[in-house]
């Protein structure tokens, strides 16, 4: 029953499921490394999904749709940035308000597109490689969003660790007073980081409404923005661990459906709760092995320059 074809197909599903989470959480990771906790991920994501779908449907271009989604995510993120960075309002409340606003705005934008559909973003079948056993489809037969998520991951990992921009960004997140004293424009950097987060969340939304389930329906993100937020914590603010977390969560979500298909009679509620339990379990193991969570020291603390 478990032949290579099934394993390959399951892997392909896992990759697709993990990609939405990976995209959204990468952006949030950057925002958090700059010291801002943006709980508006769900809101930015759903607006991205709505605007991306509306644009792609109206223009017939997936590329335009994707760009519009990214832009929409950025616009919503600016609401949060305005409140949390420039007005130094409470970040948790600002993020939650952004999410509520985003869910409403997305519903309004999407309302005239209910019941329509578009063609899904095509899988970019790479000749020869796609034909490889087991991993062929999973690794080389995916749509552009999957490859974009991997490229973004590499860029963020490298950017944070090896570039001057990354260094400054981390400095702002660790100690904004010191960074300010060194002459770094703390609030501008944070705004840019939040905008990057918005762009990524918008892209994640576009992945849902243009590739994964290519149609629009209200509340179609169904809480994935929250999972993305939790995964950033899971990763201890390290991009590579984020990859592990997103794929672990995606894998358990998909596998529990397969286990059900075998008809073992395990309560489905228990199987449905496995992704959450697995994430907790993995986090406990990781945190038991090393000390500290590595949270940016200034995370969640508003910055107001004294002079």
């Amino acid at each position: 029953m478990l032949d290579a074809a099934i394993i390959g197909a399951v892997l392909a599903s896992v990759v697709a499921a993990a990609t939405t989470l990976l995209l959204a959480s990468l952006g949030e990771l950057v925002a958090e490394r700059a010291g801002t906790l943006n709980l508006g991920v769900e809101g930015m994501m759903i607006v991205g999904a709505a605007v991306g779908y509306a644009t792609a449907y109206s223009s017939g271009s997936l590329l335009l749709g994707t760009l519009a989604a990214v832009l929409a995510g950025v616009v919503v993120s600016l609401v949060f940035a305005g409140l949390a960075v420039w007005l130094a309002a409470n970040q948790v409340a600002s993020g939650l308000a952004t999410t509520i606003l985003g869910l409403g705005v997305a519903g309004l934008i999407g309302s005239s597109f209910v019941g329509t559909r578009i063609d899904a973003a095509p899988a970019l079948h790479l000749p020869v490689l796609t034909g490889l056993p087991i991993i062929g489809e999973a690794v080389f037969g995916q749509d552009a969003f999957v490859y974009a998520s991997v490229l973004l991951l590499i860029a963020v990992t490298y950017g944070l660790a090896r570039t001057r921009v990354g260094l400054v960004l981390r400095a702002v997140g660790e100690n904004h007073a010191a960074a300010h004293a060194l002459g770094h424009p703390v609030r501008k950097i944070r705004t840019l980081a939040i905008m990057f987060g918005g762009a990524c969340a918008g892209l994640a939304g576009a992945h849902l409404s243009l590739a994964y389930t290519p149609f629009w329906a209200s509340d179609m993100t169904a809480g994935r923005g929250w999972i993305a937020l939790a995964l950033v914590v899971f990763s201890a603010w390290r991009p590579l661990w984020l990859l592990a977390g997103a794929y672990l969560f995606g894998a358990v979500s998909i596998l529990q459906l397969h286990v059900q298909g075998f008809g073992l009679g395990i309560p489905s509620q228990f199987l449905s709760s496995l992704p959450y339990l697995a994430t907790i379990g993995a986090l406990v193991v990781i945190s038991a092995l090393k000390h500290g969570q590595g949270a940016p020291a200034s995370l969640g603390v508003p910055f107001v320059p004294d002079r």
Partner: peptide, 26 residues
């Protein structure tokens, strides 16, 4: 009024409260 309009308003209201709070304290 559609539910989404009320949701947008609720978000707007919260943002206004947060902003006003800051404007008073700073």
């Amino acid at each position: 009024m559609p539910f989404d309009v009320t949701r947008v308003f609720q978000g707007t209201l919260l943002i206004a409260i947060l902003a006003a709070d800051v404007l008073v304290r700073y």
